[in-house]
Design a binder for these strands. Sequence first.
DNA 1: GGCATATAGTTGTTTATGCAACTAAACAAA
DNA 2: TTTGTTTAGTTGCATAAACAACTATATGCC
Lengths: 146, 146
Amino acid sequence: MPNNQFKKGELYSFITGKASTAIARRLQKNFKQAGLDITIEQWSVLYHLWKEDGLSQQQLCDATFRDKPSITRLVDNLEKLKLVKRVPSKDDRRSNLIFLTKEAEQLQEQTMELANQTLNEALAGVTNGQVEIAKEVLQMVYDNLK
Amino acid sequence: MPNNQFKKGELYSFITGKASTAIARRLQKNFKQAGLDITIEQWSVLYHLWKEDGLSQQQLCDATFRDKPSITRLVDNLEKLKLVKRVPSKDDRRSNLIFLTKEAEQLQEQTMELANQTLNEALAGVTNGQVEIAKEVLQMVYDNLK
DNA sequence: GGCATATAGTTGTTTATGCAACTAAACAAA
DNA sequence: TTTGTTTAGTTGCATAAACAACTATATGCC
């Protein structure tokens, strides 16, 4: 009976996502300890630019699951930090392409290493099989609501 | 090899918790459609007070996994909405006990119903067994980082 | 070409988070 | 009792999110 998948008492923590909050906080803390002054939200934008530089703001919206105002301001702050640069697109004058600076390129290795470390701390004692299932469930939830 | 549990490309979405963001947004939307003008963060505080009324702010911090300033302000806003009331503790004059108003008590049934509906939408097609494992993993992550 | 509509991005407002610094009360030790 | 430390809560500041309203450019249709 699908309505009983969750007992009420369990429902809440699933919704609020304490686990991902905890991972995010830990990663932020690990960045700070390493002397890196970027937020995980800024990092999440850089992450996609490391995969493909020169994305438009709209593409960053889709990639990071954020709305346009959020990306506008994240890019504003990343520009202040001199980690990215807005370049007007020649094909479409409405559109900005976002490019990494050299400074940002140099952050990739160190921050990815910290992110991997953080995940390993988080997943200590969890088997690969369990992780696979958890990822499948989270993906299905995301697809169901998208 | 625990370091390889995550390929880099998958790591990111696990960290940012798109799924819980998506659930939260959907629940917020469902509240709004039902004419309920509360945020899911406010709701998450009420949730714990429905389970046990008269918690202190510190107890709400622990229950909701938030810091003290966050709870101070959530209680501020809930008081403005006349959904809770701060009552100074007689045992400990540093401490406030937070009590639900009648208005807030009346919200319980409807919002819990909406939350259950939202979860059912989110978990369509996911088996109970998969959900159980996902919850275990999330709990372990939380415990590892706590 | 000219007009309606869709798309890319920005700005304003409200709410929330994290951190640091602070006040006041409680507690513990001398 | 006094002094130092912990605990409960508040305030200030910076960053971020959601939503609505806006500008400017592109596109589709007549």
